[in-house]
């Protein structure tokens, strides 16, 4: 019995060491993942001279925001030296309506497919599901013909249409799987109370959907903002989204390569998605697991 306290002490010591090792490992992994980001930020704050002479990992000796300003408003993208600003604006004008529209249609589809089951609802859902597996390269040619026919070729509204249409498959899947878990009796009760299809949707179903709305919005925003293929295929010149403009900025070189400007531009292009994750990330995890536990 006398060795019990000693054993307990060894246990706590062992546990402490385990804890230290755990945090060391976690810290190492965090560093590993953050390193590229740190290098990008550091490089974007240096001037060209320092980049050429110094080490890649070194912290900037004098912090300067010149590269950021240049990337935002002066850098040449192709022949236009306007910086990223107008293209960033294009991306916002493309992503915000496309995210809202595709989420709204997804919610309506999911609601109709689960709460107003009609003959063939499962077939319709199966076909929509299939839509989320279509490789986008397949639709490039017919889509560009369609956009031309509609007079939306090489325009931001054209991109909004493309992203809304191809987003519906995913958003419907999300909302449908969430609405399956809502009790049908709610709709029956509201029907007897005198509410119709849209009233039930606005007054009862949508107010119960914040978690799945957040998941869908994050997913759609990330997809649409980061899209390169559609942006590069269906737009040119002033209508391009920021991802395409970033590519052109990096590829437009006259003389010395301005790594600090490239890095600043890349961070600017990635900032909105980063921001969405920081603001709504915790709802994302919660929403992904919603419905798995009966609540």
């Amino acid at each position: 019995m006398a060795n019990l306290p000693a054993q307990a002490a060894a246990d706590t010591l062992g546990a402490r060491l385990g804890r230290v090792a755990l945090y060391a490992a976690l810290g190492l992994f965090a560093l590993f993942y953050l390193m590229p980001m740190l290098v990008m930020i550091a490089t974007s704050l240096k001037d060209v001279e320092e980049i050429r002479s110094g080490s890649l990992l070194a912290w900037p000796q004098s912090v300067s925001l010149d590269a950021w300003r240049y990337a935002w408003s002066e850098a040449c993208i192709g022949v236009e030296c306007t910086g990223l600003a107008p293209y960033f604006r294009n991306s916002v004008l493309m992503a915000v309506p496309a995210v809202l529209l595709s989420s709204l249609f997804g919610a309506l589809n999911g609601y109709a497919l689960t709460k107003w089951r009609f003959r063939g609802a499962n077939v319709v859902f199966g076909m929509l599901l299939f839509g989320s597996f279509i490789p986008f390269q397949v639709v490039l040619l017919p889509m560009s013909q369609t956009l031309g026919f509609l007079g939306l070729a090489s325009s931001v509204p054209g991109l909004v249409l493309v992203h809304t249409v191809y987003g519906i498959a995913f958003t419907t899947l999300f909302f449908r799987n969430y609405y399956v878990t809502l009790p049908d009796d709610l709709v029956k009760a509201a029907t007897i109370d005198g509410a119709g299809f849209f009233t039930i949707f606005w007054r009862i179903i949508l107010p119960l959907s914040p978690s799945i709305i957040v998941v869908t919005v994050i997913w759609q925003f990330t997809q649409i903002w980061n899209d390169f293929l559609f942006g590069a295929s269906f737009t040119s010149g002033g209508a391009q989204p920021v991802t395409v403009a970033l590519n052109n900025l990096v590829n437009t070189t006259t003389g010395v390569k301005l790594y600090n400007v490239d890095m600043a531009a890349a961070i600017i292009a990635a900032l909105p998605t980063l921001l969405v994750y920081i603001v709504a990330g915790r709802y994302f995890v919660r929403g992904l697991t919603a419905g798995s536990v009966k609540g």
């Binding site: 009796d185 029956k188 009760a189 029907t191 007897i192 007054r203 009862i204 119960l208």
Partner: peptide, 28 residues
Amino acid sequence: PKNRDIAMVFQSYALYPNMTVKKNIAFG
């Protein structure tokens, strides 16, 4: 259903979770 002048109480109660009791009762 809304024009049959009937009211129904469900096994699951089917109260609207997003509304207060007052709004639940007032909805119809």
